[in-house]
Amino acid sequence: MLTCRELTELVDDFIDGRLSFWERAKFQMHVGMCTDCRDYLAQLRATRQALGSLPEPPMSDDVREELLERFRTWKRATPCSGSEPGGEPGPDGATET
C-alpha cells in the first residue's frame, strides 16, 4: 500500500503517464480512498496548467530600451530584405560578432 508521502513523489510521473501498470494501479487505489491525496493531485495539476498559461512578466524599461537600441543599430548596419533598398551601412560600424 502506497503512503501519502510516497504518492506525492509519484504525482508527476502519474500525470505524465510514466508509471508502470502496477504502480499506476496502486496510485489510483490510494487516490480513490484518500481525499487529501485527491486534493493534492488536483492542486498539482492546476499548478502545472496555470504555469502553462502564465502571462509574460513585464520587462523593465531599461532592458527594453537597451535591446531596442541594439536592434536599431543592427538594422541600420544591415540592408536586409524588406527594408528600403540601398540602406546605408551604419556609420558607427557597430557590427557584432
Binding site: C4, R5, D36, Q43, A46, A50, S53
Partner: peptide, 24 residues
C-alpha cells in the same frame, strides 16, 4: 507534513477552484 507512517499529518487544504483559469 506527514506522520511517522507516511500519512498526511497536515494535509493540503482544499482549494475553492482548481482550474488554471480560476487561479490566474
Amino acid at each position: 507534513r506527514f506522520d511517522g507512517r507516511g500519512m498526511w499529518a497536515e494535509p493540503p487544504q482544499r482549494w475553492a477552484d482548481t482550474s488554471a483559469a480560476g487561479l490566474l
